[in-house]
């Protein structure tokens, strides 16, 4: 689940930043002696997140603690700009995403579209803080409806991402399509660098299991799914 390599890289980056900011002080009280005006805006942002006791010390559902979750990996860092990435950044992000993608053993399979519909509609999971989602009580969902329209007959759905109505009806279920959709759900930066869409199964962590992804894919691609009958 929890991929140590990405976090370790982030912590190394932060350690060097800590030295640069120079907040190890004689009396041990970090706060009083830190000159926030001596830091760059990026250094100060990292300092505020990691050194000012601003976050609750909790165990994250994907493993690790709050520092692990808040430490940026390479793709997050590369995409922390306003607007779209420049060409160089976009190419680098695509390369990072492709290098870490793994196709499931035995190939990509479609699951049960009915289960996929429930997962696509579920915004439960991975929330932390004053009201932490307990994955022992309920499985985390995909949050898909927050941003995509799948079936406008069911409910009001989001428009941050493209509408996916009739997605499979126009594309079919060839091996190439199955592989492509699996790649996008796992790590969409392979095709859309710095997209707003989360990575649901990447080297950073696995937010949805292979089985859950197979159900969501069925909801999207199965000819019987209501998504493809509109």
């Amino acid at each position: 689940m929890f991929k140590k390599n990405a976090v370790a890289a982030g912590m190394v980056a932060f350690a060097s930043l800590s030295l640069a900011a120079g907040f190890a002080v004689a009396d041990g009280s970090k706060d009083a002696d830190v000159d926030i005006t001596a830091m760059s805006a990026e250094e100060l942002a990292e300092y505020l997140i990691f050194e000012t006791d601003s976050f609750r010390d909790q165990e994250m559902q994907e493993g690790g603690g709050w520092r692990d979750r808040m430490t940026q990996d390479d793709i997050q860092k590369a995409c922390s700009m306003e607007g779209s990435p420049d060409g160089e950044t976009a190419g680098r992000v695509v390369a990072l995403a492709r290098a870490s993608y793994e196709r499931p053993e035995g190939g990509v399979q479609l699951g049960d579209w009915r289960k996929g519909a429930v997962l696509a509609d579920s915004g439960f999971g991975y929330r932390q803080g004053h009201n932490t989602d307990d994955h022992g009580q309920r499985e985390p969902g995909g949050n898909c409806y927050n941003c995509h329209v799948f079936d406008s007959r069911v409910s009001v759905q989001g428009t941050v991402g493209p509408s996916l109505e009739n997605y499979g009806a126009t594309r079919g279920t060839s091996e190439a399509i199955l592989n492509y959709v699996h790649e996008i759900i796992s790590n969409p930066h392979q095709y859309f660098p710095c997209t707003e869409m989360p990575r649901f199964n990447s080297d950073r962590h696995q937010l949805l299991t292979d089985e859950q992804i197979s159900h969501i894919m069925a909801y999207l691609l199965d000819p019987e799914s209501p998504v493809n009958n509109q």
Binding site: A41, E42, L44, A45, L48, I49, M60, Q61, E62, R69, M70, T71, Q72, I75, Q76, K77, C79, S80, M81, E82, G83, Y126, N143, Y145, N146, C147, S155, V156, Q157, G158, T159, V160, E196, P198, R199, H205, L207
Partner: peptide
């Protein structure tokens, strides 16, 4: 401002994921 655009967390979101465009909907 850096924090507003800083991608992070379990789902890679920053504030601009939702507030970078006009007229978009979450549900």
């Amino acid at each position: 401002e850096v924090l507003f655009f800083r991608r992070g967390g379990a789902m890679d979101f920053n504030c601009a994921s939702c507030h970078g465009d006009s007229g978009k909907q979450i549900r």
